[in-house]
Design a protein around this nucleic acid. Structure first.
Length: 330
DNA sequence: CATTCGTGGTC
DNA sequence: TGACCAAGAAT
């Protein structure tokens, strides 16, 4: 029961939201849609989009700064082994994104002469670049008119025009049509619109406890007018404790810290006497203290052997880790 | 189309 | 405390 806005409402909405954005939008280093933006290379924007996939801005900022300083161009990253990218990724989560970003850099060097491509089609052919990321890079790095739809924008649209608390679990064709409908015709305006709606969803129209009293569109909001009804479904939680993901994460933490291959038997089992005497750790492992601590953290999970084996097999299959006679390494 | 894939902050 | 959630992509 989405109500498609009239042209006049569209113009009014765009004006209100862009005014708010100019006043309240964060001056992020990869941002180009604000008048006082410093400007950022397409590569910098691409790196930010990879890091921001399912990861909050505040955690991305320091890693992005270090990353861009170390690898200011795709060629710089492509010249290094994937393991360096995964290490530099640190604790951002979903390390396969680091792997895909590296693979994308290699593809850019090999197929695009080292320059980030500027069309959605070419962008989406890159590893780790899907519907959202291709649209975002095309719009924010190259000023193209693209319908950018992320989780923030979906939520704003759902509340403002559909009147529901949250968008449907899966992205629907109706949502895509609405987003396309709303996009301003003017190219420059469309870029600002995309950034502004996204920012409104991130700062004001948040998933939990939205700040409707600060919202520039409160008077136009269908959800607010309906008395902020509850969500029609309960999102499936992402389980963590005791899962393979927890074990994989702990294994990756060990491998990131290790400067040398971790012996398989140490990686997959906790030796007898492990916690008896810290000095014995040097005899067993002889490695840097930090690696011992992460290895200890892994074993404290008390994951069963078959789960450890399964997770290691997964890491090897995903090529996030390799195994040799010396042990497991990134 | 539903699952899988990390991590840490928030309420 | 634990459940929820964050600029998604690949399968």
């Amino acid at each position: 029961m989405t109500t498609y806005p009239s042209d006049s409402l569209k113009r009014k909405t765009a004006q209100l939201i862009e005014d708010w954005f100019l006043a309240a939008g964060r001056d992020l280093p990869w941002r180009t849609a604000l008048p006082h933006s410093r400007g950022c290379s397409p590569w910098g924007i691409m790196v930010s989009e990879f890091m921001l996939q399912q990861t909050p801005v505040v955690r991305v900022l320091p890693v992005w700064e270090a990353w861009m300083k170390r690898w200011p161009t795709p060629a710089d990253l492509a010249a290094e082994p994937v393991s360096e990218a995964v290490r530099a990724w640190g604790r951002l989560g979903y390390p396969r994104r680091a792997q895909r970003l590296h693979a994308a850099a290699v593809a850019i060097v090999e197929k695009h002469d080292g320059a980030v491509p500027d069309t959605r089609e070419a962008l989406q052919a890159l590893p780790g670049v899907g519907t959202y990321t291709s649209a975002a890079i095309a719009a924010f790095a190259f000023g193209r008119r693209e319908s950018v739809v992320d989780t923030n924008i979906r939520r704003v649209h759902a509340r403002l025009f559909t009147g529901s608390a949250l968008p449907a679990p899966a992205f629907t064709a109706a949502e895509a049509r609405l987003a396309e409908q709303l996009l301003p015709e003017d190219r420059a305006e469309s870029v600002t619109w995309n950034a502004a709606v996204m920012e409104l969803g991130a700062l004001v129209c948040t998933a939990r406890s939205p700040k409707c009293e600060e919202c520039p569109l409160a008077a136009e909001c269908a959800w607010l007018a309906a008395g902020r009804p509850e969500p029609e479904y309960t999102p499936k939680g992402q389980s963590w404790h005791g899962t393979d993901r927890q074990v994989r994460g702990a294994m990756m933490a060990v491998l990131r810290e290790a400067g040398a291959p971790v012996p398989r038997e140490l990686f997959l089992a906790r030796p007898a006497g492990w916690d008896a005497d810290p000095a014995s750790v040097d005899l067993i492992w002889g490695g840097p203290d930090g690696v011992f601590r992460t290895l200890d953290a892994l074993h404290r999970l008390q994951a069963p052997t078959d789960q450890l084996e399964r997770c290691l097999a997964g890491l090897l299959k995903d090529r996030l880790a390799t195994e040799s006679d010396a042990g497991v390494t990134l």
